[in-house]
C-alpha cells in the first residue's frame, strides 16, 4: 500500500470516529445508504423510489440495522461522501445496487433511467451475470 493511500485510510477511520454523535444521528441509516448510492452514481438518472426499495431489501438481507458500529460508519461515510475507491463497504453496497437494476440489461445506457428490479441473487436467478457470453455472445463481443 502506498503511503498516501495509507494516510487516507487512517484519516477515514479517524474521521468516522470523530463525526459528532449528533451529526451522525441526524440522518437515518436508510437515508445514509441511499445517499451513498446516489453520490456514487450521481451522473446517472436514478429512480429514487427504487433506491429506497433496494435499501429496505439490503437491511432485510444483511441485517445491517443490527450492527451499531456499522451503522455509525455508514452514516459517517455518507456525510463525508466516501466513494467506492476508498471503502470496501461502499463498493459492496453500490455494486450490489447496480447489479440489482436494469442498468446492465440496458447495455449501460446512461441516458435511461435506472430502475431497481429486485435483489441480485444468482441462486434465485442463475445466469444473470450481465457481462457473460449469454448477453455478449462472441460475434457481438
Amino acid at each position: 500500500m502506498r503511503r498516501r493511500s495509507f494516510l487516507q485510510l487512517v484519516g477515514l477511520g479517524a474521521a468516522a470516529v470523530a463525526v459528532p454523535a449528533g451529526v451522525a444521528y441526524s440522518a437515518s441509516v436508510e437515508d445514509a445508504l441511499a445517499g451513498i448510492i446516489l453520490h456514487e452514481f450521481h451522473f446517472l438518472k436514478i429512480d429514487r423510489t427504487g433506491v429506497d426499495e433496494f435499501v429496505a431489501d439490503y437491511y432485510k438481507r444483511t441485517g445491517a440495522n443490527q450492527q451499531f458500529f456499522l451503522n455509525v460508519k455508514t452514516k459517517a461515510y455518507y456525510l463525508l461522501k466516501i466513494d467506492s475507491e476508498r471503502s470496501q463497504l461502499v463498493r459492496t453496497l453500490t455494486t450490489l445496487y447496480l447489479l440489482s437494476t436494469d442498468f446492465f440489461l440496458n447495455r449501460m445506457d446512461e441516458r435511461k433511467e435506472v430502475k431497481y428490479l429486485g435483489w441480485y441473487n444468482p441462486h434465485k436467478t442463475p445466469c444473470a451475470n450481465p457481462f457473460s457470453a449469454l448477453y455478449y455472445p462472441p460475434a457481438a463481443s
Partner: peptide
C-alpha cells in the same frame, strides 16, 4: 476472472 465487476465511472463500466 469473469465475475460481474465494474468501474463506477461514466462510459468506462467494463
Amino acid at each position: 476472472s469473469n465475475a460481474p465487476f465494474f468501474r463506477p465511472e461514466s462510459g468506462k463500466w467494463r
